[in-house]
Design a protein around this nucleic acid. Sequence first.
DNA 1: GCTGTATTGATAAAATATTATCGATACAAA
DNA 2: TTTGTATCGATAATATTTTATCAATACAGC
Lengths: 217, 217
Amino acid sequence: MLTKKNIVVIPEPTLRRLPHYLHLLLNLKEQGVKSVSSTFIANELGLDSTQVRKDVQYTNIIGKPKTGFDVNSLINAIQTCLNWNRYENAFLIGAGSLGTAMLGYKQFKDYGLNFVAAFDNDPEKVGQKIHGIEVLSIDRLPVLAQLMKIHLAVLTVPAKAAQECVDIMLKGGIVAIWNFAPMQIKVPQNVIVENAQFSQSLAVLTRKLSVYKQTLL
Amino acid sequence: MLTKKNIVVIPEPTLRRLPHYLHLLLNLKEQGVKSVSSTFIANELGLDSTQVRKDVQYTNIIGKPKTGFDVNSLINAIQTCLNWNRYENAFLIGAGSLGTAMLGYKQFKDYGLNFVAAFDNDPEKVGQKIHGIEVLSIDRLPVLAQLMKIHLAVLTVPAKAAQECVDIMLKGGIVAIWNFAPMQIKVPQNVIVENAQFSQSLAVLTRKLSVYKQTLL
DNA sequence: GCTGTATTGATAAAATATTATCGATACAAA
DNA sequence: TTTGTATCGATAATATTTTATCAATACAGC
C-alpha cells in the first residue's frame, strides 16, 4: 500500500465511510452481536460488500470465512485509525449559534474531540460559560494554545472574520483547522484544513432535488 | 455527456466545489471584477486550473481566451445549476441546539433554502418561535407537508429519534432529506438523502492530524 | 496590421475509486 | 467424517476523477 513514512494512506472516501461503519458496529455490540459479515454491513448502509471489505482492510482487521469480522476488534481498529480512542483537546473559535451548538454537542466525546476553551471577540460573550466551557478573548489564543499544547481548532465565525482568526490561530501553533466559516481560508502548506461548510453538502442535495423534480416533468 | 433524460449529471466532487467558486465569484463581483481566469480561481482555492475549467464546463459557461470567464454569467450559471436562484421551502425537524443554530443561519437564503416551519416532540418547545419560525408538534408534519407542498426536510434530531421522524416525513411526501442525525436512515429508493454528519468530515481531519503527528516522530 | 502571449477547450493520459470474479477457507449439518 | 455453503481476500475489470498536453483564439502592444 502507499505509505507516508510507513503510515498507510487511507483514501478520503474510505475515511468518510468509517464513521458509518463504527456507528453500526457500536449498535450491534450493544445488541450483543459478536461478529458481522461484509454483506450485512453493506446491506445496512446501502453499499457494496466488496467495498466494505476493502475499507475494512485499511484497518488491518482480518475476517473469518463464513463468520465475518469480530465486532469488537473492528470497533477498536476503526477508532484507532481515526484516533478516536483518545481525546484531542481543541479550541472553538466563534461562540455564535453554531459554535454554541457545537460546544453542547455531547457526541464529540465519541469522536475523540474535547473542547477546552472557546474564543470570541464580542466583549458581551467573553467571560461567559457556554455548556460549561469558558469563552475567552481571542487575543489570548496564541499564548494559551502554546501553553496548553493545543493543535486543533474549530472555526465557527462569520466569513469576514475568518481569515483574521486563522492568522491568530497560526500564531498559536495550531496545525489543524476544522473550518465551518463559509469561505476558503489561507494557511501555510503544512497546516491541515478540513472544510465543513454546509454549502458543500447542500449543493449536492439541492442539485439532486432539482434534477429529480425536472425528471418528473 | 452522461445525461438522465437530457439533464447533465454533474459529478459529486464538482458539486462540492461549486459553492467555493460561487463564494469567490461573489467576492470578486463586489470588488467590481468583471472577468476571471481559471488560473486565478485555481490559485485562490488551491486547485488545478484544468479542474476549474472542467467544473465550469458543467455550468455551460464558455470563456474567452486571454480573458477568462464573465463573473456575472458564471455566478448565475452556478446558482442555476444548484437551484440556488430560487427558494426551496423546507421543514426543520428537531429544534435542539443544532436545529436552533440552523434556523438562525442567515446564509441559507443565499443557498436557496427557506425554513417555513420547525417540528419537535417536546411539548416545552411546541408553540415557541425560534428566530421567527414556529415550532410545531411533529404529529402535524404529514398533513402540513402535503398542504404546503414541502419536499425537503432537514433532520437535526438525536440518533434514536431519527428513523421514527423519517417515517413520519415520508408519510408527508418528503422526497429529500438533509440528515444531520448521527446515524444511517432508511428510506425508499427514490428518496434523496444527503448525509451531513459531523463525524464524516471530522474523521478525515482527525486521521490526517494523527498521521501528521506520527510523521513528526 | 503584425506579433507575442495568456487563456480556453478539447483530447489524452494518469491516478484513484468502485465493482466483479473466483479460488481458498472455516463452520454447520448430515 | 464428509459435503455444502457463506464468506473472505486477492486479483482483475470497470468506472470515475484528476491531471497533462496542445492547437486554436482573442486581446495587447508595437
